[in-house]
């Protein structure tokens, strides 16, 4: 026992002594949103295969906000983000002298879902959803017929993404009109599979989460068409309607942010080029909606010209088509 302790102490001292040894190796460090993670994981997997493991890629899931914190301190090369960079994050980046190129990589559609036994809901407007979810609804809107009088007098049970997630931020921004503002008395979970189980087992339930979770649980859930406020037409979320921009306002672009300083490293530059070139194929494989071909071309142009900064001016914009945004810059 005594010997072991002494050995342990010696080991720790040797470790401490060997700390400064760190050789330069080719490594691409990525952190950020867990929503974007599956796409970046897929790209990283393929990139390492293509490079025969001569370049190392690491991907973390600190969340969009946590990712930007590290990114703006210059600790990561690329940041995954499920929303555009915010004003206060831009300030931190500026403070540390970090410039970045913002690149959209895919669409994420939010689906509104009910139980398959729910026969009364045919479609919903943004106003209906707002009535259910706004902060003022707390404790008051507890029955379906309070939302629309033709719906039955049965309890309304709400399920939603965890309040720390980008999904929740976006949904509240798009429906209530203010990010992070909603009623508090709903069942929330960081794990969307829990929401699937909840809605599948409750006839009076309604919830929202990523479209990919619906695709995997088609038999247990019923999709609700949402009426597009601009055209007045009801639209079911699907790869098609998300991509062509008709399923609005509940679909959003997701991004990667590349540090300009890191682009001096050839492996980071190659990784980003590889990302944009293969995104369309890989995004589909991990069940997200790819951007239109044109948008990837525009993003590539934006990257090759090293356009610094964000297209969003520090706040989340709802209902934008990514090609329009990229064109706005005159690329």
């Amino acid at each position: 026992m005594f010997k072991k302790i002494v050995l342990g102490m010696i080991a720790i001292m040797i470790m401490a002594a060997s700390i400064p040894v760190m050789a330069a190796e080719k490594i691409v460090k990525i952190d950020g949103s867990s929503t974007v993670y599956p796409i970046t994981e897929a790209v990283a997997e393929e990139f390492q295969k293509a490079k025969r493991a001569s370049v190392k890629v690491t991907v973390g899931i600190s969340g969009t906000g946590g990712g930007f914190k590290k990114f703006c301190r210059g600790e990561t090369d690329i940041s995954d983000a499920s929303r555009p960079i915010l004003k206060k994050e831009m300030d931190v980046c500026k403070e540390h002298g970090i410039e970045y190129v913002e690149l959209p990589v895919a669409y994420d559609g939010l689906a509104v879902m009910v139980n398959p036994k729910n026969t009364w809901v045919k479609s919903m407007t943004v106003a209906d959803l707002k009535k259910m979810w706004e902060p003022a609804a707390q404790g008051k809107i507890t029955k379906w017929n309070q939302v629309r009088s033709e719906w039955p007098d049965v309890p309304l049970k709400l399920y939603g993404a965890g309040v720390d997630s980008g999904t929740y931020d976006y949904f509240t921004e798009a429906i209530v009109g203010k990010a992070k503002s909603s009623r508090g008395d709903f069942t929330s979970s960081e794990d969307d599979n829990v929401l699937v189980q909840g809605i599948a087992g409750d006839k009076n339930a309604l919830g929202f989460f990523g479209l990919a979770y619906y695709e995997e649980n088609r038999d247990k859930l019923k999709l609700v068409p949402v009426i597009n406020p601009k055209t007045g037409k009801e639209v079911l979320p699907s790869e098609q309607t998300v991509m062509d921009g008709t399923y609005q306002p509940l679909s959003r672009p997701i991004f990667i942010y590349v540090s300009k300083k890191s682009l001096d490293k050839s492996e980071v530059k190659e990784f980003v080029e590889f990302y944009l070139k293969n995104a369309a194929k890989l995004v589909k494989q991990v069940k997200y909606v790819p951007l239109p071909e044109k948008a990837y071309k525009l993003a590539e142009a934006r990257f090759s010209k090293r356009k610094i900064g964000t297209l969003f001016g520090g706040e989340a914009e709802v209902g934008v088509k990514i090609e329009d945004l990229l064109k706005r810059e005159g690329l």
Binding site: E45, A53, V59, G60
Partner: peptide, 12 residues
């Protein structure tokens, strides 16, 4: 561990 920067994808 997530707080101190443990990763999720690491293929080496």
């Amino acid at each position: 561990l997530i707080t101190v920067g443990a990763l999720t994808f690491i293929a080496f």
